[in-house]
């Protein structure tokens, strides 16, 4: 089976003031990667104007593009409209569901969505008490359940989970401990560990760390742009070939 090169970045926070700047870094992406995954917070305020900039920045690339939205993309209550703008430009947008791409004859399955917070095992919120707290925790539980179903039903050779919020606390190192419950939830990792995946990508934690692991041993990468410091990370999935230095 061919190896796959997964390019990924999140938290590009585009707007009119950054129009064209990111696009210039995408030239030649087909030589470095087979697919580009966008891990949410594509805009800053979640406006339709910013959504248009995002759609124009990532359209007509020589590799398929799959995106999820982030909390910033929800701020103006237009996530469905922004997703539709991206889809009109040929960009797949996941909302707790999946897409399967044929890449070099390999079926690459991508499952995911925005994700949500709540905290990490032993230090997290529970569905208890006031309705506001219950709603907060229940939102994450429902998302995790939908990911579990999407992964169970996925028919693919390689499986990648794409999220905005983090499924583990490894990749939050550098963020203040006090805000971890707003940065992710272990329920997301638990769902993915139960069904299996080759890689989980997320953003959201600008001051975090790139590399982590789920309790089940799945590699996690925080691809928030401020963490990467480069236009995108590239992660190679597959059997090791004859040349250990190249995918």
């Amino acid at each position: 089976m061919s190896q796959l090169r997964i390019a990924a970045v999140g938290d590009v926070h585009l707007g009119e003031d950054l129009r064209g700047r990111y696009r210039s870094r995408l030239s030649g992406i087909e030589e470095k990667a087979d697919v580009l995954l966008l891990a949410g917070d594509l805009t800053r305020h979640g406006t339709l104007e910013e959504g248009k900039v995002v759609a124009e920045e990532f359209r007509d690339l020589p590799v398929p593009v799959v995106a999820v939205l982030g909390n910033h993309d929800h701020h103006s209550d237009k996530p469905a409209e922004i997703a539709a703008m991206l889809k009109d430009e040929g960009i797949s947008v996941l909302h707790d569901d999946s897409v399967v791409l044929d890449v070099k004859g390999v079926r690459l399955g991508v499952v995911g969505g925005k994700g949500f917070g709540g905290g990490f095992a032993g230090k997290c919120a529970s569905e208890f008490g006031e309705p506001e707290i219950k709603a907060f925790v229940n939102h994450t539980k429902r998302i995790a359940d939908r990911w579990r179903v999407a992964l169970k039903e996925l028919q693919a050779d390689r499986r990648v989970v794409l999220s905005h919020y983090s499924p583990v606390n490894d990749t939050l190192a550098g963020e203040p401990l006090e805000i971890y419950p707003f940065l992710g939830s272990y329920l997301l990792a638990e769902a993915v560990d139960s069904e299996g995946a080759d890689l989980i990508l997320h953003g959201h934690a600008h001051m975090g760390t790139e590399k982590g692991l789920t309790p089940g041993g799945i590699r996690v990468r925080n691809v928030a742009l401020p963490v990467l410091g480069r236009a995108y990370g590239v992660y190679c999935l597959g059997e090791h070939g004859e040349d250990p230095d190249h995918c």
Partner: peptide, 13 residues
């Protein structure tokens, strides 16, 4: 201001 550098080499997983 974040300087968006060119993408580097890939990581093999």
């Amino acid at each position: 201001v974040v300087d968006v550098r060119e993408p580097g080499g890939e990581e093999r997983l």
